[in-house]
Design a protein around this nucleic acid. Sequence first.
DNA 1: GATGCGATTCAC
DNA 2: TGAATCGCATCA
Length: 191
Amino acid sequence: MKDPGTRLDADYFRQSPVDCARGLIGGLFEWEGAGGVIVETEAYAATGDAACHTAFRPSAREFLDHHSPGDAYVYLNYGVHWLFNVTVKGAGGDGFVLFRALEPVFGIPAMKRRRGMDVIEGLCSGPGKLTKALGIGESDHGREFLTGSRTGISCGKTDVPVQAGPRVGISRAQGLPWRFCAVDSACLSRP
DNA sequence: GATGCGATTCAC
DNA sequence: TGAATCGCATCA
């Protein structure tokens, strides 16, 4: 990430999924009038990672083939929750970055309304909560959101301590330490 | 067509 | 601890 406030473009997502995921911690994610600091992400690699959708869903591999780095990859999990990813097409390999948690910064009243609760720390403390709080859904799948007038990602503070650990809720490739968190954030999906 | 499986969340 | 709830992949 560069200087605070600098807007990320598609080129950022031309490095490896792991580098993208780690570097996004501390960035500001903006979505249609609401947004917050990215405090938790996970990396998924299109090759060599059994937990990535590309390993068991041909449609995910096809999505990568037909979309550009930085495009949104949104899907319905457990038939209940939409999960938000960013497409990565790096020199070292393609993949996705899953956004798992934000620290709410603005548009908080709208997020509270959509979530039906008032505790700020809990508004975006999980991948399904985050999409509900921001109003992300099916129609955003494939969207080129980095260049939108009301959507995008900008760089935050560069000195955010980041901790790596195993990814959450997966049954395959559990050993890889590809979950990244802002240390001591009160808004993580789990401590 | 039928079946099984999730990168989750919340109530019981 | 289990239900909710459905897209996608696989198999008959």
